[in-house]
Amino acid sequence: QVTPQEKEAIERLKALGFPEGLVIQAYFACEKNENLAANFLLQQN
């Protein structure tokens, strides 16, 4: 279960064009650090 703040962060990451499953994995792998997760996702392409 995610908090409203976490859900907002996940939605912002999804808005970058990444699928939800990948976003969630990256977000939690980066210890819920939205900026770190965004950098991680962008570097995967």
Rank of each mutant, 00 (worst) to 15 (best):
L13G: 02
T3R: 06
A38K: 14
A9I: 14
Q43L: 06
L13K: 00
L42P: 02
I24N: 14
Q43T: 08
K14L: 09
E8Q: 12
N33A: 03
G21M: 14
A9M: 15
K32H: 09
I10V: 09
L22K: 15
T3S: 12
E6M: 14
E34P: 03
Y27T: 00
N35I: 13
R12L: 02
F28G: 13
V2S: 10
P4C: 11
N39L: 06
V2G: 05
T3I: 11
L22S: 13
Q5R: 12
A37V: 04
F28L: 13
N35A: 13
E11Q: 10
F40A: 13
E8C: 09
I10H: 01
I10E: 00
G21S: 11
K32S: 06
P19G: 11
L42C: 09
F40Y: 11
N35H: 12
A38M: 12
K7D: 06
L16F: 05
L41G: 00
V2C: 03
A37S: 08
N35L: 06
A29Q: 10
K7V: 13
L22P: 15
I24K: 14
R12A: 05
A9K: 12
E20M: 09
Q43P: 03
N45R: 13
L41T: 01
E6P: 03
K7L: 09
N35Q: 12
A29P: 00
E11P: 00
F18I: 07
V23A: 13
L22F: 06
N45V: 07
E20A: 03
Q5P: 11
R12M: 04
L41E: 01
A9W: 01
E31G: 06
E6S: 05
L13V: 03
E6N: 04
A29N: 10
Q44M: 06
F28P: 04
F18Q: 15
L13P: 01
E8W: 04
F18G: 03
L41M: 08
N45D: 11
Q25F: 03
L16S: 05
K32I: 00
E34M: 04
E34W: 04
C30M: 14
L13M: 06
E34Q: 04
N33F: 00
P4G: 10
Q43S: 11
I24C: 10
L13R: 01
N33L: 02
E31C: 06
F28K: 11
E34F: 04
P4R: 10
A9V: 09
A9S: 10
V23S: 12
F40C: 10
N33E: 08
K7H: 10
I24W: 08
C30S: 09
Q25V: 03
L22W: 08
P19I: 07
A37P: 00
Q44E: 11
A9N: 09
